[in-house]
Design a protein around this nucleic acid. Structure first.
Lengths: 358, 358
DNA sequence: GTGAAAGCGCTAACAC
DNA sequence: GTGTTAGCGCTTTCAC
């Protein structure tokens, strides 16, 4: 094992670097000056060669390139983006990598692939004390220096004027400010609730989403509208907060299902909550759907992969991600479009809903 | 609409910045010097205040903080990480955001949440001409400046000595070099093939994975071993390349299933390939599993979410991601551990396998 | 064709 | 307590 390998963390060097040349080959990153020194030229020349600028003698260029590959030099994204204007990377800002955001990510990745842009998905310091405003912070930290544009997933606050193009997916506000993408939350929620009503349910609970998100408010609205339409009075005790998260759903679900007059059906604001409701039901000895019907929202892959496949409202997540990417790409291309795209949401009836127990 | 909002891309500013103060409030990013100027102090002082360093008068600090929040200043990740040593950011280097890598991402995200580290998943310029060596390039571009440590997903080449800790998931080489995590590829593949044999299949095809990945080699090995064990001769024509990708599986699958002596079962090296094999089978009018049995590998959520749920070999992807994160965290903490973790893989029989047609 | 120098935004020594 | 200075790694004039 060479001296440098012993001090580093990686595997052996695959190129034939000469350990004798230690002075010009530090253990840390190989920088542009390391290359310059080893090639006997200035850093400016190395930069020109590496970036394919004109005005370098062929012989010099060749020599530099040889050193570059021998040393395994690669220009630092950080340093170059600090100096340059464009970085060619698109940022995806998320609070957390969970099924919802990763589905969008797949869609974005597919749409961006082959365009020459690189993707940088960033989940920046979202702590419990700090759940609000993360997107503003992340954006400020990256914009203008690291990324050329950003798609922000479920931003909870209005972000200030930014110097880079931004599109928001499932934003706090409805269509307002920057370009946005969302789906038909009200319509989807109405369809879900109506489905339950049509099966014969009357006591239908709702596990709400994150109260700082427009989508959660709209889904609750759809639920209320369908109930009203069916002539069923809203019972406040049957509406609880699940925060779109499994962990936050446990308690509300337990309370809801432990009531003597428990609901016969639950419409959860997203699949993560719905799935947890089902788990809690099982813990309490209730069978789904015989004793309890459950409907979710989103149609993440996990929704249909359990033993009991979830009846849910599908949002075209991959397509929403792809669309967001296309919009951002267009803006990056100079199109000043500010769009508010609305995608359809449709009910998919699977195995977690049935008529109420007799 | 204010002048700055008109020139920027974002929504309206939520803070009460004074448009009159235009000179000190450029449209681009708010920088530390903007803050310094507005607060009437030096940039050094602002830096101290923002980073909570001692040696600043309470009154000054207060004034600076007021300006910071008024202007919405946030320190640039790029600039500060260029200067600082530690960035508190962990990089996840992937070729692409597809179901496999995003499952790992979920696991990593869960394990890292609450540790104070931020996550930066990077999918850097993987073009068709450039499928090999991306991880080396990405690592060089980010290491030492942007990220403190990295987990690399399915690296295809040995990476050179790095200055930062690295753990590789499903690497090119088996256990060698840096810390690695993989699962029991041979055992899983044997179980899958044996399952097919036990159902009565004799003509069992294999759609190989990426030939530059150790896991693909091992899965093929398991397939061969099980065949030999059952006394079934290997038929080279029944082994094709699918490259772990749906798109690359289409042609091989079509050829395989169009043969007059087509196989009655296919063991695909991963779920993406298996799912595509099923699609192709349907196109050709074959029913799964009545006419053709199919087994995959990985158990991504998509495997069990279709109408026909895939029989597959499950790798504990989320756990593998979480484990990788823990190992990296430990290394970041100074532990010089170089580990090679091996996780179990187990067959899950679902709906795409049955005895061969009579 | 090449290199010296400035500067991107920031932090850390070190003066004052 | 505060400001001045140097410099992280790189790109880009602009002299030579």
């Amino acid at each position: 094992m060479s001296a440098s390998a012993a001090r580093g963390y990686g595997a052996s060097v695959s190129t034939d670097a000469h350990p004798a040349d230690l002075a010009s080959e530090p253990v840390g990153r190989v920088t542009i000056s390391d290359v310059a020194r080893a090639a006997g030229v200035s850093v400016a020349t190395v930069s020109k060669v590496v970036n394919g600028r004109h005005g370098v003698a062929a012989a010099t260029a060749e020599r530099v390139l040889e050193v570059v590959s021998r040393l395994g030099y690669e220009t630092s994204l950080v340093a170059s983006s600090l100096r340059r204007r464009k970085t060619n990377v698109i940022g995806i800002l998320v609070a957390e990598f969970e099924p919802f955001s990763t589905e969008l990510l797949k869609g974005i990745s597919g749409a961006v692939g082959g365009t020459g842009y690189e993707l940088l998905a960033y989940s920046g310091g979202v702590t419990d004390s700090n759940r609000v405003g993360w997107e503003r912070r992340s954006l400020s930290r990256l914009a203008g220096t690291l990324i050329d544009g950003a798609v922000i997933v479920t931003p909870t606050v209005l972000f200030p004027t930014t110097s880079i193009p931004v599109v928001a997916i499932d934003p706090h506000t409805g269509p307002a400010g920057p370009s946005t993408i969302d789906s038909d939350n009200v319509g989807g929620a109405r369809a879900a609730t109506r489905h339950l009503v049509e099966l014969g349910h009357r006591r239908i609970a709702h596990v709400r989403g994150r109260n700082d998100l427009e989508s959660a408010r709209l889904r609750e609205q759809g639920y209320r509208e369908s109930l009203a339409e069916a002539g069923i009075g809203l019972e406040p005790a049957l509406v609880r907060d699940g925060g779109y998260r499994a962990a936050d759903t446990t308690e509300p679900a337990r309370e809801l299902l432990s009531r003597h007059d428990r609901p016969t059906a639950v419409f959860a604001a997203n699949d993560l909550s719905a799935l947890r409701v089902i788990e809690v039901a099982h813990e309490l000895g209730l069978r789904v759907p015989q004793d309890l019907s459950v409907v979710g929202f989103d149609d993440i892959p996990e929704a249909s992969s359990g033993t009991r496949r979830l009846t849910t409202v599908a949002q075209p997540l991959r397509q929403m991600g792809a669309r967001a990417a296309q919009m951002l790409l267009a803006m990056l291309d100079g199109a000043g479009t500010e769009e508010h795209v609305h995608m359809p949401a449709r009910l998919i009836v699977r195995e977690t809903t049935a008529p109420p127990p007799a």
